[in-house]
């Protein structure tokens, strides 16, 4: 089986020479939902930007659905890797929701009736079908997050990558987003500090710290390992404990 995401020996250093990622290996199979956990500054967002070639690794390889991330493939890679950024205001930049959701697929050459169908399907998938002609500015935080998800779903990606999806959401919006994500049935990589959210959504977790993968296993096992969490500045919220 071809992996949805295959990362081998990935090294990355910032232009000033500071190493951010040191030899990261990660394989995600189709249909898997994986949480990428780690403290601030562990290299999580840097890692995400390697996946679609926005940053170029200093060493190592990334392949998405078997296609290596290289300059000639970039456009197809960016279709295959759907990144939902942390701040929806960075992602939603068009005057209406419909145009924003159409932006990705239109860039990838979808036009006419198919484009309309894709936009409608993506908005329906996230439960925002009635808001297509509104401005993203007039949506609530939770609605914006779901529209941001739709902008990526409309590109029909091989793997969905979510950067801190639960940040700035109220508990209801947080739960609604979880329900939407669980319904999607897609390969998912979720970058987060929100450990209960990781447990709810992702059967498997990967812990990165200081640019390295330090643990990879079932989410429940990792979160029950108090020593591992403490060693990497991770912590369950007050009142939470896993037996």
């Amino acid at each position: 089986m071809t992996a949805s995401l295959e990362v081998t020996g990935l090294d990355f250093a910032y232009p000033d020479g500071t190493p951010a990622l040191r030899g990261v290996d990660l394989r995600i199979d189709p249909g898997e939902r994986v949480a990428l956990l780690g403290p601030n500054g562990a290299g999580k967002t840097t890692f995400v930007l390697q996946l679609n070639g926005i940053l170029t690794p200093t060493a190592g390889t990334v392949a998405v659905g078997g296609l290596p991330v290289r300059k000639p493939n970039l456009q197809e890679i960016r279709r295959r890797v759907g990144i939902v950024f942390q701040d929806p205001d960075d992602q939603l930049f068009m005057p209406t929701v419909r145009e924003d959701v159409a932006f990705g697929p239109a860039n990838f050459g979808v036009t006419g009736a198919e484009l309309t169908a894709r936009v409608d399907a993506a908005l329906a998938e996230v439960g925002m079908a009635g808001h297509a002609d509104r401005s993203p500015l007039h949506l609530s935080g939770g609605q914006r997050r779901r529209v941001a998800l739709a902008t990526v779903l409309a590109c029909d990606p091989e793997i969905l990558v979510l950067d801190e999806p639960s940040s700035n959401l109220d508990p209801v919006a947080r739960r609604e987003l979880a329900e939407t994500l669980l319904r999607l049935d897609r390969t998912l990589l979720m970058v987060t500090h929100d450990l209960p959210y990781a447990l709810q959504l992702c059967p498997r977790s990967v812990v990165v710290d200081d640019g390295r993968v330090v643990a990879d296993g079932p989410t429940r096992d990792l979160l029950a390992d108090a020593d591992l969490l403490r060693a990497h500045r991770l912590e369950l919220p007050f009142g939470f404990a896993l037996a």
């Binding site: 205001d89 960075d90 930049f93 860039n107």
Partner: peptide, 22 residues
């Protein structure tokens, strides 16, 4: 800084320099 982040998010969705014709 927001401009830079928006640009990254646009690149991630296959931006090549022109808005799709509305």
């Amino acid at each position: 800084e927001r401009g830079e982040r928006v640009h990254l998010a646009m690149l991630a969705r296959g931006w090549t320099g022109t808005l799709p014709a509305a």
